[in-house]
Write a protein that binds this DNA or RNA. Structure first.
Lengths: 227, 227
DNA sequence: CGTGAGGTTGATATGATTCAAATCCCGTGG
DNA sequence: CCACGGGATTTGAATCATATCAACCTCACG
């Protein structure tokens, strides 16, 4: 399914609540809403490829989008995972004018699309839009920093524990929840082979974590934090 | 030495040529040049620490600045290395209002400093400034992407080879040059222990790379590229 | 029931860290 | 200008972490 439509009520609401649009003044919101196109895409659908001329800015309205780089032998490294409200392709809006990575739908997704040329042109006149782009980029840069530091400082079980803690309510009580996507996707996000994620989960069993399918139960967040 | 001064001719020139300022209109340049303060700092001097309230935007005019994160045991992971013309602390300008990492002078540096509150306030009125910040953030985000992908896809000798190639003229001829900073700093930038960098260099000897002190000679860039 | 995708487990290989010791190199003071 | 000292770098040995490959499992679905 790849029909392009104007936004319905649900899409409008998600879009207006996103960190990006919610920061804008009315005129900018109006201008963007006039040009937006909604599309619903199946898993594995490519949004763009590394090196392509950047023509579209994507905002995730539901599902997940995975950004990755390829090496010459075809191995992939996940670089970012975008979820509802996140912008994909924003790093190319202002600089280079080519996508810095490839992006693919991970879990069936609906996306809002904006013409990059028009966004760029609008941002050069409207400070609120330029600022919103910069803010989004800041957030993504901070995520990337965290990712680099995590890769370099923490082992697989530690990274998994940190991810799980980030999903828990912060009150320190026992928690259980569903993973929002496939384990293989989580493995990629954490920079692990799927086998390594699996082993990390089983090593966390001794620390009060039980996993059955996508269901996760955490007995004592404090124990995890101490890893 | 940590005297704060107004910019001299050399500092003005470097600043005006930086990717950040060179993109701005005259009014924004003037406003920034009115508030800028120059400082010259010795190696190891801290600029800011992760989590500190962000009050200053730094632009490197000479030398190098290293951004890193700490883990609870005090181990450090380098996240970015800023050189002449780069902005340090920009990821905190717009979002969070706290520094996302610690930053330290690596090689004696002179820095231009801007009051963050005033930059923020100015950027909310002037689209060219907001856009320049966004462009800088894009560039840094792309660097971070490259760093994550490199870490995950390439071995130590491959990362070192890629770094060396990036220093060569692109014409594919033999080249020799000086490393711009200490090897231990390069090791950190590439996500390696110093020992691992040293071993990588010696494994590259078989591929036409000789290193004596900071002097590097590369016989055939093409050989390196094929790693 | 068979089938297949996603996930797990085991065995092994490789790459990188860590710790310790030896060596190099550079700036300083004589 | 040269010797000296200390930080930077190199080398070796042991260990650890994760990738890789292969086999097996399991569950949802036709």
């Amino acid at each position: 399914m790849n029909r392009l439509t104007r936004p319905g009520a649900r899409e409008r609401e998600t879009l207006l609540n996103s960190a990006f649009l919610s920061q804008l003044g009315v005129e900018s919101v109006t201008a963007l809403m006039e040009m937006v196109v909604i599309g619903s895409l199946p898993a594995r659908q490519m949004l763009f490829r590394e090196g392509d001329p950047a023509e579209t800015l994507h905002c995730v309205l539901s599902g997940y989008v995975r950004a990755y780089r390829l090496d010459p032998d075809g191995r992939e490294a996940d670089i970012a995972l975008y979820r509802t409200g996140d912008l994909a392709g924003v790093s190319a809006v202002l600089h280079g004018h080519r996508y810095a990575a490839s992006a693919q739908v991970a879990e069936t997704a609906t996306l809002a699309r904006f013409d990059l040329r028009r966004v760029r042109e609008l941002a050069s006149r409207r400070a609120d839009l330029a600022l919103a782009l910069a803010t989004t980029l800041s957030r993504q840069l901070e995520n990337a920093f965290t990712c680099i530091a995590d890769d370099r400082l923490h082992t697989a079980p530690q990274r998994v524990a940190r991810y799980l803690l980030a999903q828990c309510p912060q009150d320190g009580a026992a928690a259980n929840f569903r993973l929002p996507f496939q384990k293989s996707l989580l493995a990629g996000k954490l920079g692990l082979a799927p086998e390594a994620l699996s082993r990390a989960f089983s090593s966390l069993r001794d620390h009060g974590v039980s996993v059955r399918g996508r269901l996760v139960q955490i007995d004592d967040p404090e124990t995890l934090r101490r890893l």
